[in-house]
């Protein structure tokens, strides 16, 4: 063993400015999540595989549906594409809380909290960055497959709309999941909530069928479901020439335009972040 004296405390007086410290700690925390992913890619793969199966099997299930049944006379596969893309991003983001929950349970979070973090928001920020990248990657994989199956590809402005819509949804759902990860006692409970929320939210939206197919009570449900507000703009982007002031959703309580859908998502995201902030502050100080 070496016997040279250990170096004098270097960190005591280093103060390198808030921004540089913030980015260093956020980058390090994000890097950790991606290292985990690279060595255990099964969640990423499963997150792509499941919607792919949906797309293929569900698309095939209604392949021979009478023409002209769906609004705009599109095939069921084309109709389903938007729903599956949104569902992919949604279920990916719903898992955002899991790594945080495991860190809470195994005490790794305590290791982070004894460090002089510039802001403990960097723990949350790292999760948001990570989940956003993952969800978008998964969604893009689905979009590519849909294109290969002949269900089309949104061009130019359409692609931008798809990405913006997905981002908004991912932020909102990530906020929700992170909130749950700090509010619930353990990962069993969190997985239970994820499991219960996942499929019903898919069915009670316009992912698999248009509002016109549903009974009145279900129409209400689907018109209040946040997934619907993400699905309709994306479906519009796939449909062709983009006009956000066009009515995309004829909800029982009134018509919603493309701008309306996006506004709902923005409000939802902002609301959820405001809602979980006090909880995060309490748990992280």
């Amino acid at each position: 063993m070496t016997s040279s004296p250990l170096k004098a405390a270097p960190s005591l007086d280093t103060d390198r400015g808030a921004l540089s410290e913030l980015s260093q700690e956020t980058f390090a925390l994000t890097r950790r999540l991606f290292l985990q992913l690279a060595r255990r890619p099964s969640t990423l793969v499963a997150g792509v595989l499941q919607p792919l199966i949906w797309l293929t099997l569900f698309g095939a299930l209604f392949a021979k549906a009478p023409e002209g049944l769906l609004p705009g006379g599109i095939s069921y596969g084309r109709f389903l594409g938007a729903g599956v893309i949104v569902f992919t991003a949604f279920s990916g983001a719903l898992n955002a809380g899991l790594p945080v929950m495991f860190d809470r349970e195994f005490g790794f979070l305590n290791r982070l909290l004894v460090a002089p973090l510039r802001s403990r928001s960097s723990i949350v920020l790292a999760s948001v960055l990570y989940i956003t990248v993952i969800s978008l990657l998964q969604s893009l994989a689905i979009m590519a497959t849909a294109a290969a199956l002949g269900y089309g590809w949104p061009g130019g402005a359409g692609l931008l709309l798809v990405l913006v819509t997905l981002l908004l949804l991912v932020f909102a759902v990530t906020a929700l999941s992170l909130g749950l990860a700090f509010a619930l006692p353990g990962h069993i409970e969190l997985i239970a909530v994820i499991f219960v929320a996942n499929l019903p939210l898919l069915f009670a939206s316009t992912a698999l069928a248009p509002l016109a197919f549903m009974p009145n009570w279900m129409e209400w449900l689907a018109s209040l479901n946040p997934l619907t507000f993400a699905i309709e703009p994306i479906r519009a982007a796939y449909r062709g020439p983009l006009d956000l002031s066009e009515v995309l959703l004829e909800a029982p309580y009134g018509d919603i335009t493309g701008f309306g859908c996006l506004a709902v998502l923005v409000v939802l995201t902002a609301g959820l972040f405001l809602l979980i902030r006090p909880l995060l502050n309490r748990k992280l100080t």
Binding site: T14, A28, L35, Q36, R39, G107
Partner: peptide, 30 residues
């Protein structure tokens, strides 16, 4: 910043290597 704390229950990230964990720790201390 002045204090190093070694807890009783060692919480580590099983997926990371020891060096990666130390790098993370160093970054958290800026």
């Amino acid at each position: 910043r002045r204090l190093g704390y070694v807890a009783q229950e060692v919480a580590i990230d099983k997926i990371l290597t020891g060096r990666e964990l130390l790098q993370l720790q160093g970054d958290l201390f800026h």
